[in-house]
Amino acid sequence: MIDIEKREEFDIEIDKTVGKPFIDDAKFSTRNVDVFYDDKQAIFDANIDIGKNQIIAMIGPSGCGKSTFLRCLNRMNDTIQGCHISGDIKLDNEDIYHKHQDPVLLRARVGMVFQKPNPFPKSIYDNVAYGAKLHGLASNKIELDELVEKSLIRAGLFKEVKDSLHKPGTGLSGGQQQRLCIARTIAIDPEVILMDEPTSALDPIATAVIEELMIDLSKKYTIAIVTHSMQQAARVSQRTAYFHMGHLVEVNDTNTVFTNPEHQLTENYITGRFG
């Protein structure tokens, strides 16, 4: 019989987050964040700062809470019934869960790209123009055209789709669809982009294109990416946070995490002893 309760690789006490979770000039900062799904706690006391114009990667085994944590940052968890959050999450020193804070405005400021490309059942053009139309960002057709073109160029998709702007977005390949979703997100000019395993459904070539795009975008935007792949975290991010069973175990510069992890769990994970 295998006793799953006693596995020394991951049966290690987690006291508090080690490494350097806090930085100066943070875009996002979270303090004592607990997340519950009904009675089940999914995140335990997460404290972390996310730096401006940086890419921060969140890694960890399946079910560790990294996606849940990401979805707290733009209040996407509001749409899930039975989910509630305690603690402080501040964007530019404003509490985003304050009762006067508007989730619609917040989500316009904090964009999100999902695991599975999810273009709307509309044309490529309308997909990109969607946010701008919602929020009334373009005052006329010419401005809107310009915005769509700019966003598509920025997402590196314009060349491929410029002749088929009015064809349905669902007709594109997976990688193109994901870049369309990125274009759609940057069209409303957010401050932060959250990416939830954006390349897990894509082939290596498409993945490489997206990764390059991320690095390019990080010059202007703050990016938080959840990824399953440690290599991807190492390739794109400046800082890395390691989650384990709902606990934020270690946060540090990506280099440090991958070369000299402080916590035993982090080391066990990145060296592949479990996961």
Partner: peptide, 27 residues
């Protein structure tokens, strides 16, 4: 209609009715 599609719309800062009218019903 897949939830991911609605999530995409909410993540853009659409209200519920906007998502229903512009994403769910067309889909």
């Amino acid at each position: 209609v897949p939830q991911s599609m609605c999530d995409g719309s909410y993540a853009m800062g659409a209200t519920k009715s906007e998502t229903i009218k512009q994403v769910i019903i067309p889909a």
